[in-house]
Amino acid sequence: MPKPLDDSITDVVAAKKLAAGFGDKTVWGSADFSIARGEFIGLLGSNGAGKTTLFRLILGLARPSHGTLKVFGSDAERGNSRIGYVPQRRIVDGESKIQSVEYVRLAIAGNRWGFSLASQVRRERQAALDVLATVDATSLAYRPLRELSGGELQRVFLAQALVGKPELLLLDEPLANLDIRRGTQLIRLIHTVAKSQNIAVLLIAHDINPLLPVVDRIIYIANGKVASGKPEQIVTSQQLSELYGAPIEVLHDSKGRIAVLGVEEAVHHDA
């Protein structure tokens, strides 16, 4: 893989006039943003706005329809070992008893040809246990995935994504199916791990509130447009109304929590 000229000044991700779409249908366009090393970024927007599409572009699973996207200074390509990815998983096989540690092990040697010999299996399992320990999931290692709670599952998936010391984590709705308390705990864990290893995080979420204590910036996708900046710059009535092209109201309560009103009407209006 081509190395960037200087690791310290190159952005992890840089998008210029970037557009995404399928065929001649554009999902969103003219996106200009960058992600620096170790930055924690929340990726927000309504359903179907194209948040996961941005992940697919960064992972090299889809090509930009316009503009340029640089990942670690070069064009996005599949199988980039500097990226850790947690997709939004819906199904965990209800009958399978496969242990969590085996799922983490997949990321260690799963993309090689052939099979692991007994000695390699032992080494791979040890490496998987080491990664699980970094997310406080040692006790989950030998439990079947299907027995884990939503929060425990996300910790195992996070461990899997951390294999190979990535410099960028792409997390697709890790907070889905978690209550507020568990969601906050998970965000804190992701933040701690990312800061300690200087990993940039791009995290898709529905609700900005659990992210507020940790995010450096947010990227907001709505109505085919992409905006990025500090939460207080982006999540305002004026900015969001502009993005959606419809009146949106942003309310703040005494504890700093944010409520965004009018999004559903705006999206329906658009569709």
Partner: peptide
């Protein structure tokens, strides 16, 4: 190894370049 990876975790396997 690729069969196991794609069987258990298709999305991640795809992202890993399989």
């Amino acid at each position: 190894r690729r069969l196991v990876f794609t069987s258990l975790d298709e999305d991640v396997a795809e992202a890993k370049g399989i």
